[in-house]
Design a protein around this nucleic acid. Structure first.
Lengths: 202, 202
DNA sequence: GTCTATAAGGTGATAGAC
DNA sequence: GTCTATCACCTTATAGAC
């Protein structure tokens, strides 16, 4: 594969990412992707046979970003609360750098539960060990009794929702003030962790 | 307006709601809406001139469902915690009955922040009085110090996210078991309220 | 590998008969 | 009001020259 090829491939993927994430599969246009990449439609099909194939590549990458292997934060011998803070810090950091990924993934996957199940199997995600840690902490009397599934769902909800609903949050909570919104999002790492820990710590 | 008109109009709107909410503006097809309504495309355009106009009607209704006037839960003389529980109960109840509305609204609005701002102005939403109540409760020593905006955002996140991310939650937390997912969602009213109140109550 | 031109099929919207 | 037929346009995808 020549240098030129790699550059063009790269340019196409980057353009495709931008357009697909901005407009979704149905709203995206091959023409716009070509324009964004500085080439023409024919070349797009030369490299990636169809819109569907190109989308699949973009989606897969986005999915891995949305669902990174950050469960590692819960491995190791740290204090449970430390691990929790690490998880939240890492995840909010990723989301901060890729703020449009969550809504893209959630929207596109809402019609295609089959693909989701395949991807989940592929990534071999298993979070049972987190549930076990929660139960362990309850038994040790470190945290109050709480259903581990609700607990985990709460953590993730508090991290992801504010970016998925950015337009609403921006409009209602900040009356359109982008700067205020970003400042609030910056505070979120500590705010979310504090909120959760206050809720569960005995 | 004759009885027949009203029935056809009604049928069209219901069909449009189903298709638009399922596939989004870009993914929806007038043909599918016509089929769903048991009529043909021409009649669709006879009643509602264009796809855009029909979509606007559906979206507006969905938006009002997504953002109902449930701030009323925070008015009145009840205990703050009672009001909070009422808010969560009411909102989760609405979401339970319209589980596809949130992701539809959030997705469609992500490209059209102009329309959003207009709608928000139209609905004249003002939640400052909730922030004041939070500050009041802090000063009275009923709840710990917390930024009211973060607090409110947390409440809403915990309510909405689990339905927006249903496919993910279903796949990861419940390995595809729909029944288990619905049972969990049923527990959510008390779980969310308890989680929040544990976090803020002194 | 990259381009222009064009095919092939779909989609929103309208004309016109009933 | 409701239908069939059709237009005009758009979009993906390919053919073929360079």
């Amino acid at each position: 594969m020549s240098e030129k090829d790699r550059n063009t491939e790269e340019k196409i993927i980057q353009a495709a990412e931008k357009v697909f994430i901005e407009r979704g599969m149905d709203g995206a246009r091959m023409q716009q992707i070509a324009d964004e990449a500085g080439i023409n439609k024919a070349l797009l099909h030369y490299y990636y046979r169809s819109k569907a194939k190109l989308f699949a590549i973009v989606f897969k990458t986005a999915f891995k970003t949305f669902m990174p292997n950050l469960l590692g934060a819960f491995k190791g011998d740290d204090d449970f609360f430390t691990k929790l803070r690490n998880f939240i810090n890492t995840y909010l950091g990723i989301i901060e750098k890729n703020p449009h990924i969550p809504s893209f993934v959630l929207h596109e996957i809402s019609h295609e539960s089959d693909r989701l199940i395949m991807m989940l199997n592929e990534l071999n995600i298993n979070i049972d060990f987190i549930f076990e840690q929660v139960i362990d902490e309850i038994e040790k009397g470190h945290i109050r009794p709480i259903d581990p599934k609700h607990f985990f769902l709460n953590v993730v909800s508090l991290c992801i929702f504010p970016v998925v609903a950015k337009p609403m949050v921006l409009g209602i909570l900040f009356k359109g003030d982008e700067k205020a919104y970003h400042q609030m999002m910056g505070e979120r790492k500590t705010q979310v962790a504090d909120f959760i820990i206050h809720s569960i710590k005995i």
